[in-house]
Design a protein around this nucleic acid. Structure first.
Length: 576
RNA sequence: GCGCCCUUAGCUCAGUUGGAUAGAGCAACGGUUUUCUAAACCGUGGGUCGGAGGUUCGAAUCCUUCAGGGCGCGCCA
């Protein structure tokens, strides 16, 4: 049940019938009518702006309309205890205890309470992480990884079909340098040769040694005498080793992709040629020149003819190159081909999770997807902003080339999977995060994760102490509870849960979920502590029994926390 | 130069298609435990929502403009 929707529908019914009777005129658009939780100070359960919206078309002050509507509303709805009209014209609604019983009963055993019902089921392909397979994942990757995973969970919670995909950039110069680095590390191990640290293209990181060692151990016949001879073989072995690391890291974060799509495969299949032909046919590409960006050192810039995609047709600020100087395809070209394969797999919606450094890429890739599919908004891109690492109060930069960066493994070891996920998710993906290592480690007790988990653990303890299992279904034969004001306060928060999911889903912004769970937990902890002064607020009575109304209340809160934490991919321990 | 993101309390951040006197945590100060988990709670102080215009019943939220910070702008992916 979604009480906002419920009352919005009721109100719309009422104004429609009042309109039929000629009592009021309706505006063109009923969408701006809201039913919301009012600010706490008003001491009521719901509020609506309907009279402000109707004010203009009726040419009457909102207060006058509020008067009329509240009379109609009160007649119509048996759950309304009291209606008050406030200053500009808000109608504030207090619901009676019958309503809260109805509410509790309705959601107690509702499957996935909070999920959006009556939503069309669509097929989603979500691409995330897609980090170059040249080494383990670092902290920066983890944010996008977690975001993608949680958006997937959120979609699934709302009955959508989701495929999680990782695009493996196992082709191109970087991969060649990577493979060469493995080659030199192998020679270092085999022949005591010194690794050429002066070559800036190579990857000096220690993990390369491990990759080299694994490859030597598993391929005794491979001869490290001439890179060119073994290049292809070594590259695919190195990428495979690197992907093992990546998968290990993802597993550390609790993430599992359904598919790994290979760029090499796309190149081998000539998918790039095919898609370029299609774009040519539809007149989206041409030979032209690109101007150098201003305000930078462009002394090395040589303007020349190259094959370009007309992304400016779709609002981009430049057309984008598909070919390099040597006429091989750019990264963009193979990505276009990759996205064409996505389209050919018949998904309804494509989602890409990108790092902040790739945000400039969004316009061109959404443009090309629009060009290929003929559909706007077929591809939705979400950006996960930078994670600024701070250690001992000082920021430090990570560098993949130098090899001095913090991996996901380090992170998990120090902070833990759940805390990492919760902290990364606790703020908007559009805002940068200061991730203070020393702070997170030191103050792990102040971590919001534990605050929410503790709430669940407290509820569990009540079940445990009354010889019940928190995971069991509760069957109540008779409702008619008399919930206190403080309990209703929490039920109101519970009632807002579907709204939290609705907005998170609509905007694909899951950070609202941990924020909500924290607030709910706060309300609950607060209530719990009231039991110290007021015995009636305790859950377990002197005879070690719990009343049905308290049991239902606890179960409802526990369900929401559990559902929310499941979406976040975080545990809810029953004991802490 | 252009594009995208950010700017809200001392610090880190929420703020639901525009809604009522803008909210949390941390930090500071003062309190709460013979009783269901104190990893908790209660209280106090703290604001020109970066600046300036505009849109309207109503703006932190939308538009314009300016300032500051970040990311990016063919031959890396």
């Amino acid at each position: 049940m979604n009480i906002f929707k419920l009352y919005k529908d009721k109100i719309i019914d009422i104004i429609k019938s009042a309109n039929k009777k000629g009592l009021i005129k309706l505006p063109d658009n009923l969408n701006s009518i809201n039913v919301d939780l009012p600010p706490k100070k008003f001491n009521c359960d719901l509020s609506t702006n309907v009279s402000m919206v109707l004010s203009k078309p009726n040419n009457k002050p909102p207060l006058e309309i509020a008067e009329l509507l509240s009379n109609l509303l009160k007649k119509e709805d048996k759950y309304i205890e009291k209606l008050t009209i406030e200053k500009p014209g808000f109608i504030n609604i207090n619901l009676n205890s019958e309503f809260w019983n109805f509410f509790a009963k309705d959601i107690l055993n509702e499957k996935n309470y909070g999920s959006q019902k009556n939503l069309n089921q669509k097929k989603y392909l979500i691409e995330f992480v897609s980090a170059n397979p040249t080494g383990p994942l670092h902290v920066g990757h983890s944010r996008g990884a977690i975001l993608g995973d949680v958006i997937s969970n959120l979609l699934k919670f709302n009955n959508q079909i989701v495929t999680k995909e990782y695009y493996v950039n196992d082709y191109g110069n970087q991969i060649l340098h990577f493979s060469k680095s493995v080659y030199f590390r192998a020679r270092e191990l085999l022949y005591n040769e010194i690794f050429p640290t002066d070559n800036p293209d190579l990857y000096p990181g220690d993990y390369i040694k491990q990759i080299a060692k694994n490859i030597i151990d598993q391929n005794p016949n491979l001869k490290f005498d001439d890179f060119d001879l073994i290049s292809e073989n070594l590259t695919s072995l190195s990428v495979a080793e690197s992907l093992k690391m990546v998968k290990f890291n993802l597993n550390n974060l609790g993430i599992k992709h359904d598919n790994f799509a290979s760029e090499t495969q796309i190149v081998k299949n000539k998918d790039v040629d095919k898609v370029i032909k299609k774009l040519q046919k539809d007149n989206f590409v041409y030979k032209g020149k690109i101007k150098a960006p201003e305000g930078e050192d462009n002394s090395n810039w040589i303007e020349r003819q190259q094959l370009l995609f007309k992304s400016t047709d779709f609002g981009d600020d430049k057309d984008r190159p598909l070919q390099k100087a040597d006429e091989t395809w750019t990264y963009f070209a193979s990505d276009v081909a990759y996205h064409f394969t996505k389209l050919n797999r018949n998904y309804d919606v494509l989602i890409n999770i990108l790092g902040a450094d790739h945000a400039g890429y969004i316009k061109r890739i959404t443009s090309v997807v629009e060009a290929l599919s003929g559909e706007k908004n077929k591809l939705i891109c979400k950006v996960s902003q930078l994670v600024k690492l701070i250690k001992d109060g000082k920021p430090f930069k990570m560098s993949k080339r130098k090899g001095d960066y913090i991996t996901v493994e380090d992170l998990i070891e120090e902070v833990g999977k759940d805390a990492t996920r919760f902290i990364m998710l606790n703020r908007s993906n559009d805002a940068e995060i200061d991730f203070d290592f020393t702070k997170v480690k030191e103050k792990s007790k102040d971590n919001p994760l534990y605050y929410v988990q503790y709430c669940y653990a407290r509820i569990s303890s009540v079940f445990r102490n009354t010889n019940k299992n928190i995971n069991d279904k509760i069957n109540i034969s008779k409702y008619g509870f008399d919930y206190s004001k403080d309990e209703i306060n929490i039920l109101k928060k519970i009632a807002a849960w579907p709204r939290c999911i609705e907005v998170s889903l609509d905007k694909l912004e899951p950070h609202r979920i941990p924020v909500y769970l924290y607030e709910l937990s706060s309300d609950f902890h607060s209530y719990w502590n009231m039991g110290k002064d007021d015995i009636t607020k305790r859950f377990i009575d002197k005879n070690n029994l719990i009343k049905d109304e308290k049991l239902v209340f606890l179960k409802i809160v526990a369900n929401v926390i559990k559902n929310g934490m499941n979406i976040l991919g975080v545990e809810t321990p029953e004991k802490m």
